Amino acid sequence: MTEPRLTHLDAAGAARMVDVSGKDVQARTATASGTVLLAPAAVAALRSGNVPKGDALAVARIAGIQGAKRTPDLVPLCHPIAIHGVDVGLEVTDHGVSITATVRTADRTGVEMEALTCVMTAALGLIDMVKAVDPAAVVTDVRVEEKTGGKTGHWTRPREDPDR
């Protein structure tokens, strides 16, 4: 058996951007999720619409979309690709806000990094809006849930593994 090859390293072990020019353009999607854990006062402020800075959920949604679009500026070896659609779901729960992002493209490489960046920037936008109410907010469990397209085709996160 051979070790899996890290595609972002050249033969000498130096970082490189993978050449995707030979790949076929195809529809690709990625869905990621994450959670912002908040104090009860922040949850109450979100539910009542009384966040001092304004509509925190709207700001988080826009922040997530902007983050997806700017991913190659933030992740060093990520390809700049056309983003054809971004959906950001925000659900206020008893413990904070659950964030789900789905990013779509028709390109030569996937959008997993864009979906993850979307979730993280939505979380950061939300925290910025509620930090006066809850300076101890925590971002947790950011992960890819599903992807379609590319060489590996359709992938869905397996059920929870207690060792992960």
Rank of each mutant, 00 (worst) to 15 (best):
R47N: 13
R28W: 03
L124M: 13
P158W: 00
G67I: 00
R28D: 08
T109N: 03
A56I: 11
G89A: 11
V43L: 02
T2I: 09
G150M: 02
A137S: 12
K53M: 12
T7P: 00
V144I: 13
M113S: 05
K147G: 04
P4K: 03
E112G: 03
G149R: 00
A60C: 13
R70N: 11
G22F: 06
G67Q: 03
A44N: 13
L38V: 03
V103D: 03
E114A: 04
A101C: 13
V139A: 00
D19M: 09
P76Y: 10
V88M: 02
D94L: 01
A44H: 15
L37Y: 12
L116C: 07
D87P: 06
L37S: 14
A137H: 01
E91Q: 14
K23E: 14
A60W: 12
D10G: 04
S98V: 15
A82H: 11
A123P: 02
P135H: 06
Q66T: 15
L116P: 01
V51A: 09
A41Q: 14
G67P: 08
R143T: 10
C78V: 08
V130F: 10
D163P: 07
D94P: 04
D161I: 05
A58Q: 14
A60Q: 12
H95Q: 14
A45R: 05
M129A: 11
H8P: 02
L57G: 12
